[in-house]
Design a protein around this nucleic acid. Sequence first.
DNA 1: TTTTTTTACGACACACGTAACAATG
DNA 2: CATTGTTACGTGTGTCGTAAAAAAA
Lengths: 88, 88
Amino acid sequence: MTIEDLRYFIAAYESGSFKSATQATGSVPSNVSWRIRNLEGSLGGKLFERKHRRLQPTRKGMRLYGHAKTVMAMLAEAEREVRLAREV
Amino acid sequence: MTIEDLRYFIAAYESGSFKSATQATGSVPSNVSWRIRNLEGSLGGKLFERKHRRLQPTRKGMRLYGHAKTVMAMLAEAEREVRLAREV
DNA sequence: TTTTTTTACGACACACGTAACAATG
DNA sequence: CATTGTTACGTGTGTCGTAAAAAAA
């Protein structure tokens, strides 16, 4: 699991499709597909059900989403604080 | 910034040297050095002062450490919860 | 001089985009 | 058949460990 994986996952989750997630991520469908599969592999289970027009998150997907958002927010905050902190 | 970067940073921070961080990370000195430099580059400033026997974290380093620990804990918790969640 | 950190480097794995294919509705 | 997701594939970048150099103590 990487931060990029989470970013792609969030984009897919929020946009409701892999196609639309390509805009949010600035990438292409094959990469979105690949990232999500990565994540599903490393977490041991599907995050989305792909049998509907609008992507259906599984329970695992829903659980992950909340944490993923928090992690991303915390990383942004960490980056901000570190940049702000003076040297030495 | 990647999760691996944070893992290396935490190891260096807690062990007090790059050398000892190799044990915690299961890697070699050159990689620890490289990871920390990555992080310092992407965050725009030094995280450690390297002029003392025991690695001296800078203010930026100290700020980062707290967040890094929290992020890692949250990732572990996320992973645990997702694994526990039943399919579908 | 001993210990720690950095740099140089070759090898391998990862992540990208294009394009062809499959599946869904 | 129109749209979305996946697979195949070639290419470039990232990350690894070894080994040599530099810096610190």
